[in-house]
Design a protein around this nucleic acid. Structure first.
Ligand code: SF4
Ligand code: SF4
Lengths: 147, 147
DNA sequence: CTGTTTTGAGACTCGTTTGTCTAGAATGTA
DNA sequence: TACATTCTAGACAAACGAGTCTCAAAACAG
């Protein structure tokens, strides 16, 4: 559905939104906090920076930081930046070149599901996700949740 | 989301349900009708037969045929037979070992989507899909839809 | 028995994805 | 300047999925 790199990108942005605002956090530190491979996570920051979602700075005290208000960054933006503009096109039958014209017998039911996913990506911001990390007892990393 | 083999399996069953009832149709013939690779389609019939969804017979006049009433075969059965009991477990963030306890911030919204997909797989039968091929102008194959 | 048709199982190639690693350019500090 | 820190780009290998191909076993027809 979503590539691993894309998932890592979402996790990174939510992690940044959850941390202190203006600080530039090194990628390896964020990767350690998320329990991910630092090298692989670093590969996602390129597309994210080009898309204007994060700023990055080299050298000591460098790192990555959000470029915009996290409440203005939608999950859809991250997906588009990393996986391109053809996400969530996965389908049950996966006929090549199937569109609205001459669809397969599952198209009606499936397009409803797909619309739901699309709306979810559009409506969810990384700021809202980060906020939920505090209020509820949720987790981002695959590591031992503290406590 | 669904493996290609699984998609092929669904297509095969719907194709069989759409054809004449008791006939054993050779796999290569069904593959030609669906515009698929006969060799690859043949790999799906093993699991389907083991799951009791189709019967197969060798030799001349052999082939595959539905083992049950197509109205009693649910798409979920096909998915379970080919992709195993861990289908549709794809997720947005894909954290390893994430369950209902300590979920990620998208879990609520996403589990709703997943429930929709699950219900769709459970409620849809290959018989119903085959019936729609006639009433509406739908297609199964990627080939030129005959007119 | 001989040959043909078909399923059944599996090895094999190929391309994409995932992940690791290395080298280099930028940035700051002493 | 010398050095440490960090991003950036890309080479590289491992793993996976999709698809092709081969060979053997079953079933039938003559
Ligand atoms: S449900 Fe729609 S998009 Fe999916 S295979 Fe069928 S026609 Fe194509
Ligand atoms: S917690 Fe739920 S929504 Fe989050 S990755 Fe796991 S299954 Fe998906």
């Amino acid at each position: 559905m979503l590539s691993r790199a894309c998932q890592y990108g979402i996790l990174l942005l939510v992690h940044l939104a959850h941390g202190e605002g203006g600080r530039f956090e090194p990628v390896h530190e964020a990767a350690a906090g998320l329990g991910l491979s630092a090298h692989f996570l670093a590969k996602t920051v390129g597309p994210l920076a080009r898309a204007g979602l994060v700023k990055s700075y080299r050298g000591p005290n460098g790192g990555v930081a959000l470029a915009r208000d996290p409440m203005q960054i939608h999950v859809r933006d991250v997906v588009r930046a990393i996986d391109g503009s053809t996400p969530v096109e996965c389908c049950v039958l996966g006929l090549p070149g199937c569109g609205e014209n001459r669809p397969c017998p599952m198209h009606d039911a499936w397009s409803a599901v797909r619309a739901n996913v699309s709306r979810l990506l559009d409506d969810t911001t990384v700021g809202a996700l980060a906020a939920r990390l505090d209020t509820e007892s949720l987790r981002l990393s695959s590591l031992d949740p503290e406590h």
